[in-house]
Design a binder for these strands. Structure first.
Lengths: 367, 367
DNA sequence: TGAAGTGACCGTAACGGTTCAGAACCAATT
DNA sequence: AATTGGTTCTGAACCGTTACGGTCACTTCA
C-alpha cells in the first residue's frame, strides 16, 4: 500500500511551525485567536496544515493545558445498555443530553458495571464533572467519583451532604398515593418494590431490610407507604413486601404472584415503579382477577407505557430531572454549594385503582 | 468556609513523590504496575496519597502520554436529545453501549447540532475513534471526524470508500417489501419518506431530488421501490412521494394527508420508517379509511410500537447494528480496512397490508 | 570468587499543546 | 527626537503523566 510507505508521524503544532518557519505560538493562535496574527499568515498556516494533514490541535493535549475536557461524565446504577431499556432512564438521559447540548458539552457514558467493582473507568474518564444517576449509598463507583476533584451532581440517590442533588420527594409522593388508596378504602395491601441493596434478594423484605436499604429512593417510598398506612391503624410489619433485583416486567409479575400467594385477600398491589406495576398487572389478570374491580394496582414514575395502560401512578418529571442535573453541574457560576433541587410530582388517577368490594362508603354507612 | 482556607493546589504525582522522597516514576508505578515496587513502599505511597487527597493519576495527562482516551465518540444526525426519542436510535445506542461496556470503553456523545455548523465539538472530543450514525453525505461534522487521525465506523450512511461501514441493504429490503405489495396487487401507490437532504422540504419530491438525495439510506429505499414498481410497468415519476424533515408521527400524518389529497385513488401508502407509518396510520383512520380493507400502510424499521400496531414493515436489527459498529471500531486488530458489515433484514407481514379492492386475482381473471 | 541474575528504584525525555510577558517593528503623535 | 500605541510574532514555562533505559545493591550458583 502506498499508504504505509510514508509512515511519517502525524503532524503536530511543532512540525507545522517548523515547516512554516514560525513559532508554535503563532500556529496555536491561528486556530484559537485569529485576531492575534495577520490574515495572510493565518491563511498560510491553515493551508500548510491541510497540505500536511494536520487535523488541528490535539484535544487531549489541549485539555491537559487548559484543564477543561469539554465533557461531563454520567455514572449509572446499571449496565450502560440497561439505561436504554428503562423508559425513565431514557427520559433522564434525554433531559441531560438537552442540557449538555445547550452548553456545547459532551456527555461521556462511563462504563461502570455494578457487578464488577472495577472503578478504573471512573479514574480514566476525562471529564469536567460527573452526574450520578440513582446509585446505592455504598456504590464504590460513587466513592471514586467523589474523590475526583470535579463538581458532582447526584440525581435521586443517594442523598449526600456536601453534594448537589436533584430529585423528588419520594416519601411525600408515595404518601399521597397511599392516602388516595386509603381514602378509597384499602387497608389490606401488598407491595412490590425494586432492589433495596446491592445484594440480590428476590424475596420478601424484612422490616430491618426496609430500613437499612442502601437505595434511598426505595427506602423513602416504602417509608411513605408505611407512614400513611400506620396512621390508619395498619400494622406495617404484616404487609407483604416483595423485592426484586431486576427491574423488568417479568420481575413485577413474579413478585405480584409471590405477594398474592402469601395473602390472597389483599385489595391493592402497590408497586414502586411502573415497570413492575405493568408486570404485576399482567400477572393479576392472568390469574383471572379484574382490575380494578377485584384488585387495585398502582405504579410509580409516570412512563408513557403506564399512561397507555391507564395505570394509577405518580408522575415524576424525568426529563426535567436530567435537564436540572445538567444545568446544576454546568452552572458552576453559582458557588453556593451544596445545592438541592426538588421537583414536584403529580398523582395520576388512572383506571387501575378503585374502592375494594365493600367500598369505603359501605364500610362507613353499612350496606 | 474552612474549605477555602487552604486552597493548596491539588496534589500531583510530583508533589506526592516529593513528599515521600521517591521519584515520580515510583509513584506512577504504585498505581499502574504494583509489581515494580515493594508492597511496603506501595502501601506508603497509597497511604500518603489518601492523606494528601491525591485522587490518582490525572486521566487527561495519562491520555496524552499513552495516546489512549479510553472512549469512543458518537456522532449523530440529530440533536443529542433526539436520539433518546427515536426507538431505532435507542436500539442502536443500546447495542453500541453493549459493545463499549464489553471493552470497558466510555461512550462520548458528541454535541453536534446539525443546525449550526459548529464543528468545534468534534475537534474537542478526546476519543480513540468515532462511530458515525446515519448522517448526510455532506455533513460537515463527518468531514471533521474523518480528518481526525482515529479509526471511524459509519453506520447506515453515508457509504464511503475507505471507511468501515455497518448497515443493511436498504434497497434490497425495500425492494422485497415492494414485491410483496405488488404481489398483493398494488399498482397505484403513494410514498412518505424522511428528509432527503439537509435543507428542509416538507413537500413532494421531484425525481431529481430523489436521485440527488444526500441521505444514502432514503435514496436507496426509494430506489428499491422505484425499481420494483417500474418492473411491473408503473411510471415511477407519477408516484407521489412526500418528504418530511422532522421524523415524527405528526410528520407522517401530514405527509399521508398530502399524498391522499394529491391522489385519493392510491391503494397503498408506503412509508420509509415506522414512525412515519404510525403517523400515517392515524391520519388514514381519521379520514375514515379502514386498514387494510380500504388502504394498505407499510413502514420500515421494525420498532416495538410498530409490532404492537400490527404494522407490515421491514425489521432491521438495530441493536445488532450498534453492537457491530462498536466491535468493528474496537477490534482494531483486524487491520484489513475498509471493512463492511451488512446485516440482514426481515419482512414482517403485519395486518396493515392486504390486496386492494379488486384483488390481483380479479384483475387477472375478471369478475 | 567471579559472573550472571534479580528486585527495587530513578532520571530524563517525551506527549502536544496554551499562555503570558515581552521583543521587534512601524506609524502616528507630542 | 522621544514617546506612545498598535500589531505581529516569539521564547520559555508549564500542564501531569508514562516510557524507556538505565543504576545499584543484593542474591545465587558453578
Amino acid at each position: 500500500m502506498a499508504r504505509s510507505m510514508h509512515v511519517r508521524r502525524p503532524a503536530t503544532l511543532a512540525s507545522l511551525a517548523a515547516e512554516l518557519g514560525v513559532s508554535r505560538t503563532t500556529v496555536s493562535n491561528a486556530y484559537n485567536r485569529p485576531d492575534q496574527l495577520s490574515p495572510e499568515l493565518r491563511r498560510r498556516v491553515l493551508e500548510t496544515a491541510r497540505r500536511l494533514g494536520y487535523p488541528g490541535p490535539d484535544p487531549v493535549a489541549r485539555s491537559l493545558r487548559t484543564r477543561k475536557a469539554g465533557a461531563v461524565g454520567l455514572l449509572l446504577t446499571e449496565n450502560l445498555s440497561y439505561a436504554f431499556r428503562d423508559p425513565a432512564a431514557i427520559g433522564f438521559l434525554e433531559g441531560l443530553a438537552l442540557a449538555c447540548e445547550d452548553a456545547g458539552t459532551g456527555l461521556l457514558l462511563v462504563p461502570a458495571n455494578p457487578e464488577r467493582e472495577d472503578v478504573a473507568a471512573v479514574h480514566r474518564a476525562g471529564v469536567d464533572g460527573f452526574v450520578v444517576y440513582s446509585v446505592p449509598d455504598d456504590d464504590p463507583h460513587l466513592a471514586a467519583v467523589l474523590e475526583r476533584p470535579v463538581p458532582t451532581v447526584v440525581c435521586d440517590q443517594p442523598d449526600l451532604d456536601n453534594v448537589d442533588r436533584v430529585g423528588i420527594d419520594d416519601q411525600a409522593a408515595m404518601h399521597a398515593l397511599a392516602q388516595h388508596l386509603i381514602s378509597l378504602g384499602h387497608r389490606r395491601v401488598g407491595v412490590v418494590c425494586m432492589r433495596l441493596a446491592r445484594d440480590r434478594n428476590d424475596d420478601f423484605v424484612t422490616p430491618e431490610r426496609q430500613q437499612a436499604a442502601h437505595f434511598h429512593v426505595q427506602r423513602a417510598r416504602l417509608a411513605g407507604l408505611a407512614q400513611a398506612f400506620a396512621s390508619v391503624g395498619v400494622e406495617w410489619a404484616t404487609v407483604p413486601v416483595a423485592e426484586r433485583f431486576d427491574h423488568t416486567m417479568a420481575s413485577g409479575a413474579s413478585a405480584a404472584a409471590q405477594v398474592l400467594e402469601r395473602d390472597p385477600q389483599i385489595t391493592a398491589l402497590i408497586c414502586t415503579s411502573d415497570i413492575l406495576a405493568l408486570g404485576a398487572l399482567g400477572e393479576v389478570q392472568r390469574r383471572g382477577l379484574r382490575v380494578p374491580a377485584d384488585i387495585t394496582v398502582t405504579g410509580f414514575d409516570g412512563i408513557r407505557e403506564a399512561e397507555q395502560a391507564g395505570l394509577t401512578t405518580v408522575r415524576q418529571p424525568v426529563l426535567e430531572k436530567g435537564r436540572a442535573a445538567g444545568k446544576l453541574l454546568l452552572d458552576s457560576a453559582e458557588r453556593t454549594r451544596p445545592r438541592a433541587v426538588t421537583l414536584s410530582t403529580e398523582l395520576v388517577l388512572g383506571a387501575t385503582a378503585a374502592s375494594p368490594r365493600g367500598t369505603a362508603e359501605e364500610r362507613w354507612f353499612g350496606p
